[in-house]
């Protein structure tokens, strides 16, 4: 990223636990994701989560690109994972 960054107010990936539990039966914050932008792998709980927004935006702690976006509407949950190569969910 060419710009200088001021991270601003954000949470860690544990903030995803409740909203994601609505969709997945397991606690997905223990899952490992790989960032599609820089390849860094790590627990979802380690993502930088911006929640003061129209949805939740989880960013890679290494490159700050978006890994996961989640929007809850009155009748649906939208989960955009295009910023993750894959999720490894321990079973």
């Amino acid at each position: 990223m060419p710009e200088q960054l001021d991270l601003g107010p954000h949470l860690d990936g544990n903030a995803l636990a409740g909203p994601l539990r609505e969709i997945f039966a397991v606690d997905v914050t223990a899952a490992t994701s790989r960032c599609a932008a820089c390849g860094q792998a790590g627990a979802l709980a380690g993502l930088h989560v911006y929640a003061s927004a129209p949805g939740m935006v989880a960013r890679c702690p290494s490159c700050e690109e978006v890994v996961l976006r989640m929007v809850r509407t009155p009748d649906a949950a939208w989960l955009d994972l295009r910023g993750a190569v894959a999720l490894r969910i321990p079973m």
């Binding site: 200088q4 960054l5 001021d6 601003g8 003061s52 927004a53 935006v57 960013r59």
Partner: peptide, 13 residues
């Protein structure tokens, strides 16, 4: 004036 932010605040020279 609530501040909504979906990411870091970019600082552009």
């Amino acid at each position: 004036f609530p501040v909504l932010s979906a990411g870091p605040t970019p600082r552009v020279p």
